[in-house]
Each structure stands twice: as structure tokens, then as C-alpha cells.
Amino acid sequence: MANTESELMLRMHGIKKSFGENEVLKGIDLTVARGEVLAIIGPSGSGKSTLLRCINRLEEIDGGSIEIEGEFLAVTDEEGHAAYAGAKKCRELLSRMGMVFQQFNLFPHMTVLENLLEAPIHVKGLAREEVLPVARELLNKVGLTGKEKAYPSELSGGQQQRVAIARALAMKPDIMLFDEPTSALDPELTGEVLKTMKELAAERMTMVVVTHEMAFAREAASHVIFMEGGHIVEQGAPESFFSNPKEGRTRAFLQNML
């Protein structure tokens, strides 16, 4: 299927980002079409998290532009200053994205169900009765029916991360961002989270996933980006990317991951 304009969910162009003197992103271009899963891989410190966090403005870019479904979240003017859309527009665009963190970041003082209901009720202003079936449906989807009343601390890491995915989905985002969602998990628990993510991908959810799980990237991604030192070193469809990497650095990295 061709990537027609209307299908473009995310476009980032010339993204630059520094922390003080440390230039972390040195001009990143990428696009994600509806239903695509973009996997971002690369060594630690290469700027993957920063790039992901720039998408939903957890970090602000210094240069470049970000387009969400054809609307500008941030643009850079002639003088090279990045400017964000107005507060209202930003809120609206950012509300189309959900994020899942390495450390889950569930609200520990709320039960599983309350974690899911929180934003739909208090941000969207929906009625509890209206959100409840949606929340239950989502818990069922991530395989956690029966855990409604549990507190996050009573769950395993894998269960917590699945709650976090459900919590993000409860806001009905168009794009889901994942920052190493399985890196904080014991190896035997990564499978259940990856399975949930694969199911999401199969439902054509648009996803950007920073990951160290090469098998997942290979199987679930529609496009893979390899980053190093704030640059995109190589990218492509997973089959060719993994079986026939062109760059020496990509090969060295993939070798290391095995």
C-alpha cells in the first residue's frame, strides 16, 4: 500500500536536540504511516529515548519539525528557532499519542482500574459509567481481567507493563510510543508484554518502539531504524535490515545483540 499523504501519522524532519553542550540528536528524519510499526534500535546513549520523547514533547527540540497526522506540532523558522504550536493545538495533537515507559510509571496509589479510568474521567471529562466498559475491555485485552482491584505493587513487572499499555490505550491514541517496554523486566516476563504489543500491531495500531528485542523488531516491525551517536546509521524493512545489513556498524551492533 502506498504511503499517501492522508495516511502519514508522524513526520519528523531535521530533528536536533542538545543537552547543554551535548548534541544528542544531529538531524533525524523519519516518517511513520498509519498502521506501521517503527522499531528504533541502537546502542545505549545513542539518543533513542530522546528522539522518542521529542515526539510527544517530553523533550523540546532545538531544530527541525514535527508533524502529527499532517498538522505541525513544531516547526523551525528561518532563523533556526524551533517553535511549537499554540497551547491548545499542542494539547490536542499530544492527546493523540500514548506512551509506555521502561519503568511502567503506573500510579501506585490507585488500583489497576483506577489507573485506567483516571485520564478518561479527569482529562476528557467522561462519565465513569461510560469509561468502565472500555477499561474492562482493555484489561481483558491485555489479559488482566480479575486484577481490577489490585494495586500495581501487587503485580509482577510484566503485569504492570500490560496495565500501563492498557492505561495509555484508554485514552484512545492514534499513535503509541514505547520506550524499551521490556528492559526492566525479568527475561521470563518479557514474552507476555511483547505478545500484547504484537497483538496491538496486528490490529494496525501505529507504533514507535525503542527496543533491544531484535526478535520482536524482526517479527512485528514494518520498518527498522538503527541509531548511533545521534544519527540514523541505517534503516529499512526488517527482512533486509536484519538479514543483510549494509553498514559495518549495524553489523557490529547486531552481532553483539545475538
Binding site: 499530544l94 500514548g98 500510579f107 485520564a119 482529562v123 500501563a164 485514552m171
Partner: peptide, 10 residues
């Protein structure tokens, strides 16, 4: 916690 809240639009 702040970041999670922010990404949920709070």
C-alpha cells in the same frame, strides 16, 4: 509520575 501524567494529557 509527572511524565506519565503528562502523556495522559493531565
Amino acid at each position: 509520575q509527572y511524565e506519565a501524567a503528562k502523556t495522559l494529557g493531565m
